[in-house]
């Protein structure tokens, strides 16, 4: 996709996010809208090894969402990419749906992990990163993957899956910024660094808000890049709404060896809907008041760029 096509796709995804939230009557607007560009870049940017027709292929890159509350954007991106029908998006948060209010491990194609309780997906991601590296080592040592000795296949979710890894998959894990207030996140960070998981990349939605207000007011995170650097990460700070920057970061990531990478994606929470942008009160609610959804959907037809309203320095 060209940059313009990516922008259009992100806008379609945002519109579906709004529709899902309104249909559900609950859910998290701000982060879902804010991360639409990054999710679009990941699923449509051509940088990763993903095949919606073969979602559990052993050689796929693993995409893990740790801040599970922004799953509307994950589900919408997956549906647009062809992992499951787009019609299913409106079942989000409803009974009998595969699209749970917070992600449930392999409930639908592409949903790699359970998340929502913050910090847990970060640990899962380092576990997956360890696992794929160990499996690849086994292949190098002459075993046919995990099945080499006993012919067991514990998770044969697809009949088409390759039996063993031919290359080392990348593991991408999305997190929120307030998720870095969880101690578990830093436990996992230490582990990733100790084990030189250079095929592992965290992408944090640095939108400076959380459910109760601004991150720097509730529990200051800065200087975040320095902290993560001290924990052994190569840290990249990007404009999370600039497809060229996102794409470059995913490329540059590959040149970092023996260190995991942490991409700080600076985003505008509620991106694309003016009355939501940079407002913490939109963290955990949908646009349910009269006219809000219509206004939001109309606005999303306008492309916006990260201007001077950068949320790094909030003002009262």
């Amino acid at each position: 996709m060209t940059l313009e096509e990516l922008q259009d796709k992100a806008n379609e995804i945002r519109q579906d996010v709004i529709k899902m939230l309104v249909s559900a009557g609950s859910g998290h607007s701000a982060g879902s809208l804010g991360m639409a560009d990054v999710f679009t870049a990941v699923y449509f940017g051509g940088k990763l090894n993903l095949d919606p027709k073969n979602p559990w292929d052993e050689n796929r890159d693993r995409i893990i969402l740790s801040n599970g509350h922004i799953c509307p954007v994950w589900y919408a991106a997956l549906a647009h990419a062809g992992y499951f029908p787009k019609e299913e998006l409106l079942t989000f948060r409803k009974i009998n749906s595969r699209l749970q209010g917070h992600p449930h491990f392999r409930s639908a194609p592409g949903i790699e992990n359970t998340s929502g309780p913050l910090g847990q997906g970060v640990s899962t991601a380092v576990g997956v990163a360890m696992a794929v590296r160990k499996k690849q080592e086994m292949v190098k040592n002459g075993y046919n993957g995990l099945n080499g000795q006993k012919e067991k296949n514990l998770y044969s979710h697809s009949n088409h899956s390759s039996h063993s890894l031919v290359h080392l998959p990348r593991v991408i894990c999305f997190t929120s910024d307030a998720e870095l207030q969880e101690g578990q996140t830093w436990e996992a960070a230490m582990f990733a660094s100790k084990n030189n998981l250079d095929h592992l990349t965290f992408i944090t939605d640095r939108n400076h808000i959380q459910i109760g207000g601004f991150t720097e007011e509730i529990m200051p995170l800065e200087p975040l890049a320095e902290k993560l650097g001290a924990f052994g990460f190569h840290v990249l700070s990007i404009n999370g709404h600039n497809f060229q920057e996102i794409s470059n970061a995913l490329d540059f990531d590959l040149s970092i060896h023996r260190k995991p990478v942490w991409i700080m994606a600076n985003t505008i929470p509620g991106k694309g809907v003016a009355f939501m942008e940079n407002m913490p009160n939109w963290h955990g609610i949908p646009p349910m008041e009269k006219g809000q959804a219509v206004e939001a959907l109309a606005e999303l037809n306008r492309l916006r760029t990260l201007g001077e309203g950068f949320p790094g320095i909030y003002e009262k």
Binding site: F105, E112, N113, T114, G119, Q120, G121, V122, S123, T124, A125, V126, G127, V128, A129, M130, A131, V132, K135, L146, N153, L154, Y155, G183, Q184, E187, A188, M190, F191, K194
Partner: peptide
């Protein structure tokens, strides 16, 4: 290391991979 919560999460990732 002394990180039981992380240990449980890492195990989930390892188990997801078989």
């Amino acid at each position: 290391g002394v990180a039981e919560q992380n240990m449980a999460g890492i195990a989930a990732g390892l188990a997801a991979e078989g």
